[in-house]
Design a protein around this nucleic acid. Sequence first.
RNA 1: GCCGCCUUAGCUCAGUUGGUUAGAGCGCUUGAUUGUGGAUCAAGAGGUCCCCCGUUCGAUUCGGGGAGGUGGUACCA
Length: 505
Amino acid sequence: MAKKQKTFRPKPRLPKGLRDIRADEIGAMTNMLARLREIYELYGFEALETPAFEYSECLGKFLPDQDRPNAGVFSFEEDEDGEWVSLRYDLTAPLARFVAANYDELPKPFRRYQTGHVWRNEKPGPGRFRQFTQFDADSVGADSVAADAELAMLGADSLEHLGLKRGDYLINMNNRKILDGVLESAGIDPVAEENASQRLTVLRAIDKLDRLGEEGVTYLLGEGRKDESGDFTKGANLAPAQIDKFLVYLRAGNEARGDVLGALEPLVSESPSGREGLAELREIDDLLEAGSFKADRVRFDPTIVRGLDYYTGPVMEAELTFETKNEEGEMVRFGSLGGGGRYDGLVARFKGQPVPATGFSIGVSRAYAALEALGKLEADKRNAPVVVLVMDQEQKGRYQAMVQSLRGAGIKSELYLGSSGMRAQLKYADRRAASLVVIEGEDEQAEGKVTIKDLDVGSELSKEITDNKEWRESRAAQKTVGADDLISTVKEMLAARNTDQEQSA
RNA sequence: GCCGCCUUAGCUCAGUUGGUUAGAGCGCUUGAUUGUGGAUCAAGAGGUCCCCCGUUCGAUUCGGGGAGGUGGUACCA
C-alpha cells in the first residue's frame, strides 16, 4: 500500500510581535511621518539616518544584560571576525555613536531628528510590537535646560499637528534630580552602590501611582504587594516615617506648574540635587510660559520616572488623557505615546568627557493606534484608482490605450488584468475601493462612447433597491459620454467625489 | 520572566460522554437573473480539530510537555 506522500508545507506565519502593514495604514503612517517631519524641521532640527544595526558594544552598556547579547535586543555574530552586532533598540544610542565619531566637525549644539524602525526582543502586547517606528529629536551639546523645555514644546506641537486636540494629551515632566532629592531627604542615599536596589524599588513604586493608587504604592514602599494574579512583588521595606515622606511627595500634584514646584520645595530643599532639580524645573516653567505653553499642554508630574540608569536631569512623557474602548468594548490603556529626557552620560561613553544631551521620542506606531481609536484616520478616498474594465478580451489594446491616456492626464488608473467576466471585474473594482470604473462594451463602441460609473454613489443607490432587475436596469450612478470626453468626464466625476469627501470630513 | 485563561474552515464560533462521512453563520469561488459591484437562488472549494510525546483496539476529545494568542504582573533603553 502506497504511503501518503508528505510534502512539507510551511505555515505562512510571522514571528511573534511582528506584523504586516497594509496600504491604508501605510498611507496614514506616511502622512503622520510627514507631519512630524514638518514640526521637527520647523523647530530647526536636521535630518539624520543611521543603519538598522551596529556593533553591540556601540549600542551599549544599556543592554539589560551584557553577558547575553540576545536578551532584549536582537543580536548576531558576524562570521568573519566574530564581532557581535545588534539591531538598534532606539535611535538615541546610534546618535551617541554618530556624535562621538563626528564630534569635531559637528556644530554644537547638534540638533538632529531621525525616524525609523527599531527592534526589541521582548514580550509583545497589544499595541506593543517587536518592530516599531520611532521619531526622535535630540540636542547634543546643550547643557541649558532650555533644550529640554524646547523638546517639551516640540512634543506638544507634534501631537497636535498629528490631529490630537488640546486636552487629549499632556506632556508630563519631572526631574531625575528631584527624585534623588526626595530620596535623600527620606534618608536614602541617592548615589551609594549598596542600596541601589532599594532605590530602584522606591522609584519604580512611585512610577506606579497612576495604576496602583496610593495604597498599592504604600505596599510597594513597605513589605511588598500581591497582585490579582497572586504574584508577589517585593517591597522596599522602608520605615513608616519614610513612607509618609514619599506619600506627601506623591500628593504634590500635577495641575498648575507653579503649585507643584511650591509643594515640592519643602520636600527636597535639604538636598543639593533636589534644589538643583527644582531650579531647573523653575527655569523650564519660565521658558514654557514665555512660549505660551500652559498647563493644559505641559505639566509637572513628580511621579514620572523613566530610564533610571540613563536619564540624568529633566524627563518627560507624553500621555493620552482619555480612555478608549476596543472592538469588544473593553477599556484600553494606551501607555505613553512618547517620552524623553536628559542623558548627559551617553556620549561620554565614547568620548571620556561629558557631553550633555537631551531628546524626545514619539512612538509612531502607538500614536497611530491612538489616532485610529480616536477615529482621526478616516480612509482617504481621494486616492482611489479608476479601473478600466476589459469588456472584450480580444481588444485589450483599446483599453490599454484608455488607461494610458488617463495616466497621461495624471489620473491614477489601472487596466483590469484578470480574465473574468464583467461581474467579477466590478467586484474586483469594488474590493479595490476604486473610485470610478470605465466601461466600453459593444454598445458604447458602436456609438463611439464610453460609460463611467461612480462606485460609491452606486453603492449608496443600491441600498434602496431590492429588485435585481430594477438595480441592473437603472444603470445606477453612471454616465455615458462621447469617447473624446473620457478624460474630462472622469476629471469632473472625481472632482465631485473630492468635494463630497471634503464636506463630510 | 511569573500567574491564569484560550487555540476546531479565511472570520466568529458550535460539537464530539474517546469511535468510522467534524458542522453552522458570515466570507470566498463559479453559475442563474440577455453587459453592472448590492439583494435573491443554485452549486462548489476550503480543516494534520495548534504541535510533539504518552495512555488506548482507537485521541480533535484524556494526561504530560511545547508553541502561539490573551488578561494580569514584572521589566522597559
